[in-house]
Design a protein around this nucleic acid. Structure first.
Lengths: 341, 341
DNA sequence: CTGAAAGCGCTTACAG
DNA sequence: CTGAAAGCGCTTACAG
């Protein structure tokens, strides 16, 4: 590889000092002679000089880069939110490094340490929840962090989240209005107490009760993605199967759709479905899928703004209340209209 | 934010020199006293010291990071290949920064410059094709680069690509075997001469001719995503519509599927479909979609390996022939079996 | 077995 | 209006 041209080369070539070149690069033209400016411009062009950001970052103690660690990149939610974060950072002239913790606290820890070693100026984390000491330490050091999707109990870091209970509630109400009563719900595993899942289940049960429906425990399950089909099989074995089902997220939805297909069921004739997360294929699926959309763009934007804000003020105060965003029902065609309610 | 603890602090705390701490960190234990080692270990733990990678990178002139610039992140192909690249780099202890050029040469240029300013050790580019000077310069400087998905004429950078002609060929042959003769194809725009699209169309026409079918020009179109439906409308207006259609990529497929739905067509009764790119919902769509899969993982892996290889040897020779990967037909249920061929 | 010194490529008071 | 000097936090010959 060629010897790279440095600021010293430009300075020599333009017959000025490095300081002056640096001023030029940083557009501090205040007192710079017009001819000096031109000479430097010329030299930069001739030598094909590109500043070394690593050197600048070292000196300035800022990389103008943030890290985002998603719990699991396989959720469309994660990718959409990440896109929004990137867009906002772009505008603020910040770069973004996305890492996937894969639901593994050990990986999350590794990434937090790696990103901090790389001197990112702040972190947006979809926390696994199982690195409390680490989270705590960053809080103590007043290192800029914001949580996304999930809060962490007793760690007062601003969190931007969905109003999860409401997400279930609007789905249940829609089923109810269409005449459904035997309503089931499946979410991903809550073994680790992942709060959005817990909240969605709570919201589901509350909504049923508010409608004076009894909660049938056999109809609400929280399992790993690969156990979804077995969970459904059980529901279908045990007497009367549900007539409507709410999928807790996009991965669960996918499993339900596969189960439906494998068992020759028809949507919505045999089973009505609503999925939380507005999947990309919802519009052109057969039939088009009714979903509860998260405002992913708004959430990502807010998280980025809050983080950038923390980065820009020296002493971030963390009394910011958590942000809860409202989900939205997108009615398509996967819920059967039952006659005579 | 707290004052950060540096190597000097550790050295003082352990009563050794910075050099010794550095040796320790880099596991050069050759001649290090056992007690020294322990003292340093102790000091690091007590102070909660984390090395500053930015400083190290500056000195070592290597960031152990590569950049990847995808032409358009909306293609599932791009995201899958990126995942593979990340996996391979991970193993080699390299980090990855993904950027999306959004099919815009100006953005591509910006990202190339930004990433090089950030001192990434090499670049994997899905080239827009319209930054020839830049590509050329990197080649001249012997800066490590590999192209993905598309070659750039006269720029002898190793490229890993699909055997695009074959992708069309196996699709056409499958249609033919099932008894179809009126076969259409739609790809994304070839206004910019994007080579995979051109090659897929060439392959399509060649395959038809090899089968002694005439190429009906009205049946093969290359348009922007938002013009796909109009292109289809024209086919349907003009006399006999096609009985089978090949989608040039996942975005075109999505538009075709939407058109089918909006016009109350039924797959495969009214129209048989094959899509190039094995979309995530192919398996559980109604009906399950027959696709031509690209070996995305293999392609990403190879690109990463070739790049890492270039990075590790001082003088990369670029006579490496282009790599062409074979597509694979995944038969599901979107192609009608016509009786009596 | 360990340390002093130089240097990576920048930026930034400060002096003139 | 411009330059000399120090310093960001590391690594690496080299000396002892």
């Amino acid at each position: 590889m060629m010897r790279t041209v440095t600021m010293a080369d430009v300075a020599k070539h333009a017959n000025v000092s490095k300081s002056t070149v640096s001023q030029y690069l940083n557009k501090r033209y205040d007192y710079m002679g017009e001819k000096t400016k031109l000479r430097i411009e010329e030299a930069i062009k001739e030598l094909g000089y590109q500043p070394n950001i690593v050197a600048r970052s070292l000196k300035q103690k800022s990389t103008k880069t943030i890290g985002v660690i998603v719990a699991n990149i396989l959720h469309t939610f994660s990718t959409e939110v990440s896109r929004a974060i990137e867009d906002v950072c772009q505008l603020a002239d910040f770069h973004t490094i996305i890492c996937n913790a894969d639901d593994d606290p050990a990986k999350e820890k590794k990434y937090i340490e790696m990103l901090r070693a790389k001197q990112v100026d702040g972190l947006i984390i979809f926390p696994t929840g199982n690195n409390r000491d680490l989270y705590k330490r960053m809080l103590d050091e007043k290192y800029p962090v914001v949580f996304l999707d999930r809060p962490v109990p007793d760690i007062s870091v601003s969190s931007v989240m969905l109003n999860n209970e409401k997400a279930s509630e609007i789905a249940v109400n829609h089923f109810y209005e269409k005449g459904h009563r035997r309503i089931a719900m499946i979410t991903a595993s809550i073994a680790e107490n992942v709060s959005p899942r817990v909240e969605r289940i709570d919201g589901f049960k509350k909504a049923l009760r508010a409608l004076n429906l009894v909660v049938i425990e056999e109809y609400v399950k929280s399992v790993q993605p690969d156990e979804v089909k077995e969970a459904l099989r059980e529901m279908w074995r045990a007497g009367e199967p549900p007539e409507a089902i709410l999928a807790g997220n996009d991965r669960v939805l996918k499993e339900i759709l596969t189960f439906v297909k494998e068992n020759g069921l028809s949507i919505p004739a045999d089973l009505s479905i609503i999925g939380i997360d507005d999947v990309p294929y919802a519009d052109f699926y057969n039939p088009p899928l009714t979903t509860v959309a998260q405002p992913t763009f708004q959430m990502g934007k807010t998280a980025a703004e809050v983080l950038l804000d923390k980065i820009h003020k020296k002493e971030p105060e963390d009394d910011r209340p958590d942000d809860r965003f409202d989900p939205e029902l997108i009615i398509r065609a996967s819920v059967l209209e039952k006659g005579g309610v």
